[in-house]
Amino acid sequence: MRWFLIFIAGLLFGMGLVISGMTDPSRVIGFLDLSGNWDPALAFVMGGAVAVFALGYFILRKLEKNRFHGLGLPDTSADPVSKRLVIGSAIFGIGWGLGGFCPGPAIANLSVFRTEALIFVPMMLLGMFLAQRVFGLDR
């Protein structure tokens, strides 16, 4: 049941990426192009996702507290902002702006063997591997 749910969760996520337009690099770059021909529509992707997640998260936390102890929700409390994480996020943002791919959409585009994704994803995994070698695994 747990495995099935996780697969379905991935299925919904993948469909959401395509329907929202996040899998189109030109569109993502257009969203980040504030000074040019700005296309603000993709702001609604994060808006919709955060709204739904926040509502569900709030309900799950309440359920865990009042009814089902030990639901096993992860610790999402904020850590102190660290220099390492800020610099890492900036590097991530530069890569995102260059290719218009973040990890989810790049992996989603593997489904139809898009050339850019076939190049991007192995390089991304290499970058992840290197970062884990340097900084270690985190939570």
Binding site: T76, I87, S89, I91, I94, L98, F120, P122, M124
Partner: peptide
């Protein structure tokens, strides 16, 4: 460009502890 972008996204996401979904959504 996609090769370089992939490397930066992969490295930055793990150095930065998350990506658009981990930080941005969750």
């Amino acid at each position: 460009v996609f090769a370089v972008a992939g490397l930066l996204v992969g490295f930055g996401s793990r150095m930065g502890g998350g990506c658009t979904s981990g930080h941005g959504v969750c």
